[in-house]
Lab assay of single mutants.
Amino acid sequence: DETGKFLVLALYDYQEKSPREVTMKKGDILTLLNSTNKDWWKVEVNGRQGFVPAAYVKFL
């Protein structure tokens, strides 16, 4: 149950560059965990948590 969690859509592919980031593919649906930083949002994708560039995702 994803109640209270926001979902975001990956607009572009992103390859993680550090262990704190996660890789996503364009079209992936991600669970948004934290968006307090304007540049990097914490998400969960494929069972992994990490950061992606905020400009690469949008709210569903």
Score class of each variant (00 low, 15 high):
residue 1 D to V: 14
residue 1 D to L: 13
residue 2 E to D: 14
residue 2 E to K: 13
residue 2 E to S: 14
residue 3 T to Q: 13
residue 3 T to L: 14
residue 3 T to W: 13
residue 4 G to A: 13
residue 4 G to V: 15
residue 4 G to Q: 14
residue 4 G to P: 15
residue 4 G to R: 13
residue 5 K to G: 11
residue 5 K to A: 12
residue 5 K to Y: 12
residue 5 K to W: 10
residue 5 K to I: 13
residue 6 F to L: 13
residue 6 F to K: 13
residue 6 F to T: 14
residue 6 F to I: 14
residue 7 L to P: 04
residue 7 L to R: 11
residue 7 L to F: 15
residue 8 V to N: 01
residue 8 V to I: 09
residue 8 V to S: 02
residue 8 V to A: 10
residue 8 V to Y: 09
residue 9 L to F: 11
residue 9 L to S: 06
residue 9 L to M: 14
residue 9 L to N: 02
residue 10 A to V: 08
residue 10 A to P: 01
residue 10 A to K: 01
residue 11 L to C: 08
residue 11 L to P: 00
residue 11 L to K: 08
residue 11 L to I: 11
residue 11 L to N: 04
residue 11 L to R: 07
residue 12 Y to N: 09
residue 12 Y to P: 00
residue 12 Y to R: 14
residue 12 Y to G: 06
residue 13 D to S: 08
residue 13 D to F: 04
residue 13 D to V: 02
residue 13 D to Y: 04
residue 14 Y to A: 01
residue 14 Y to G: 01
residue 14 Y to M: 01
residue 15 Q to N: 13
residue 15 Q to V: 15
residue 16 E to F: 05
residue 16 E to A: 15
residue 16 E to G: 15
residue 17 K to N: 11
residue 17 K to S: 12
residue 17 K to L: 10
residue 18 S to W: 06
residue 18 S to C: 08
residue 18 S to R: 08
residue 19 P to A: 12
residue 19 P to R: 08
residue 19 P to I: 09
residue 19 P to F: 09
residue 19 P to G: 09
residue 20 R to I: 13
residue 20 R to H: 15
residue 20 R to T: 12
residue 21 E to R: 04
residue 22 V to M: 10
residue 22 V to K: 01
residue 22 V to W: 04
residue 23 T to W: 04
residue 23 T to Q: 04
residue 24 M to T: 03
residue 25 K to C: 08
residue 25 K to Y: 11
residue 26 K to L: 05
residue 26 K to R: 12
residue 26 K to C: 06
residue 27 G to H: 05
residue 27 G to K: 02
residue 28 D to S: 06
residue 29 I to Q: 05
residue 29 I to R: 07
residue 30 L to Q: 01
residue 30 L to K: 00
residue 30 L to W: 01
residue 30 L to Y: 09
residue 31 T to C: 10
residue 31 T to D: 05
residue 31 T to N: 09
residue 32 L to W: 03
residue 32 L to N: 00
residue 33 L to D: 01
residue 33 L to R: 04
residue 33 L to I: 15
residue 33 L to G: 01
residue 34 N to M: 07
residue 34 N to L: 08
residue 34 N to A: 09
residue 34 N to D: 15
residue 34 N to P: 03
residue 35 S to K: 12
residue 36 T to W: 10
residue 36 T to D: 15
residue 36 T to Y: 11
residue 36 T to L: 10
residue 36 T to M: 11
residue 37 N to P: 04
residue 37 N to D: 14
residue 38 K to L: 09
residue 38 K to W: 07
residue 38 K to Y: 08
residue 39 D to Q: 12
residue 39 D to W: 15
residue 39 D to E: 12
residue 39 D to C: 14
residue 40 W to H: 03
residue 40 W to M: 06
residue 40 W to Y: 07
residue 41 W to H: 03
residue 41 W to G: 00
residue 41 W to P: 02
residue 41 W to L: 07
residue 42 K to H: 11
residue 42 K to N: 06
residue 42 K to T: 07
residue 42 K to C: 11
residue 43 V to C: 05
residue 43 V to I: 08
residue 43 V to Q: 00
residue 44 E to A: 09
residue 44 E to K: 07
residue 44 E to Y: 07
residue 44 E to R: 08
residue 44 E to T: 07
residue 44 E to Q: 10
residue 45 V to I: 15
residue 45 V to F: 14
residue 45 V to Y: 11
residue 46 N to C: 08
residue 46 N to W: 06
residue 46 N to I: 04
residue 46 N to V: 05
residue 46 N to Q: 10
residue 47 G to V: 02
residue 47 G to C: 06
residue 47 G to M: 05
residue 48 R to E: 05
residue 48 R to K: 13
residue 48 R to A: 07
residue 49 Q to W: 07
residue 49 Q to E: 09
residue 50 G to V: 03
residue 51 F to R: 03
residue 51 F to Q: 03
residue 51 F to C: 09
residue 52 V to Q: 00
residue 52 V to A: 03
residue 52 V to S: 01
residue 52 V to H: 00
residue 52 V to K: 00
residue 52 V to N: 00
residue 52 V to P: 00
residue 53 P to K: 03
residue 53 P to A: 02
residue 54 A to H: 04
residue 54 A to P: 04
residue 54 A to Q: 05
residue 55 A to K: 15
residue 55 A to G: 12
residue 55 A to I: 10
residue 56 Y to P: 00
residue 57 V to H: 00
residue 57 V to L: 15
residue 58 K to W: 09
residue 58 K to P: 01
residue 58 K to Q: 14
residue 59 F to D: 06
residue 60 L to I: 14
residue 60 L to E: 07
residue 60 L to N: 05
residue 60 L to M: 11
residue 60 L to H: 08
